[in-house]
């Protein structure tokens, strides 16, 4: 009896997964009965709120990717640097408190980062790039980089620590210095974990909503310029739901189609990261 009850609570996870796929699939099905899949994936203008309505998703994917790639470019070297510092160099109490303090960055809600991007990062960037727009992809990239730093630093740190001391001692015995041991022995040995952290952080950056909605703007366009406003997939979904669009219209259904693309992208990233950990993790016995 009790076991049945507990099994039911465990079933909730399966029901949630099925529910997500069903809801996204059902509304997307209605969407694609009005907008052809060909238009959705093979045209390049996204203008769902004005006549003539155009649903080519590439500007939104472009917006999401430019922000996420920018965030990774900032976050990966810094996060790896922090991980190397905290696992190989820092000692004593300083090493102990470093990780929890950095975890605070991950605990700050994303709406706070969005606000920070808007009121501090963009004004700062204006001094460097006077032509920058008020809403721009770069400021969103920078705050998302800060947001995902703890993810990267923490997973890299764990995988660096997992390299046994004997491996380092072997290198030291050959007369190498600490930086040489770290860069040419320890980091390559931990590469699978580093790669996994990178992909996981990238998937977080893709799914991030509030910071991109506040800081990156609402102008879907195909561009590689990080100084202009773009619209990410998540920002579009948030914009439509803020605008009180009636149920059953094609705009309402379009957020589910965009959500489905977002879901598939993050799912692929997460599965890839799990696969890398399983496939490439070296075992030291």
């Amino acid at each position: 009896m009790v076991i049945r009850g507990l099994a039911f609570t465990a079933m909730v996870s399966i029901m949630t997964t099925v529910g997500i796929i069903f809801i996204l699939g059902e509304e997307s099905f209605h969407f694609f009965s009005q907008v052809s899949i060909k238009e959705f994936f093979f045209t390049t203008t996204w203008a769902p709120l004005f006549e003539p309505r155009l649903f080519g998703i590439w500007p939104l994917i472009n917006g999401t990717l430019i922000i996420a790639i920018g965030a990774i470019i900032f976050a990966l070297p810094i996060g790896l640097g922090i991980a190397i510092y905290s696992s190989e160099y820092a000692t004593g109490w300083w090493q102990k408190i470093l990780k929890p303090v950095l975890e605070v960055l991950a605990g700050i809600p994303s709406v706070v980062y969005g606000f920070f991007a808007l009121t501090e990062v963009t004004p700062f960037l204006t001094r460097i790039f006077p032509q920058i727009e008020v809403f721009n992809a770069l400021s969103a990239s920078i705050v998302i980089a800060i947001m995902i730093l703890p993810t990267i630093a923490s997973i890299c740190d764990d995988s660096l620590r997992a390299i046994p001391k004997a491996v380092r001692d072997g290198a030291y015995a050959l007369g190498t210095r600490k930086s040489e041991v770290t860069l040419s022995i320890v980091v390559p040995a931990a590469l699978s974990g580093i790669l996994a952290s990178f992909i996981l952080a990238f998937s977080r950056a893709i799914g991030e909503t509030m910071a991109v909605t506040l800081a990156a703007g609402a102008t879907p366009q195909l561009t590689l310029n990080p100084l202009v406003g773009v619209q990410a997939m998540t920002a579009y979904i948030a914009q439509v739901s803020l605008g009180d669009v009636p149920h059953g219209t094609v705009e309402y259904q379009s957020i589910f189609a965009v959500g489905l693309v977002l879901f598939v992208m993050t799912l692929a990233m997460n599965l890839l990261s799990q696969y890398i950990v399983r496939r490439f993790a070296r075992k030291y016995e």
Binding site: I206, T209, A238, N270
Partner: peptide, 14 residues
């Protein structure tokens, strides 16, 4: 393990 990586906005749609 799949759900742990799903973006929060997708839960909103659910």
């Amino acid at each position: 393990s799949t759900l742990a990586g799903v973006p929060s906005i997708i839960y909103g749609m659910l």
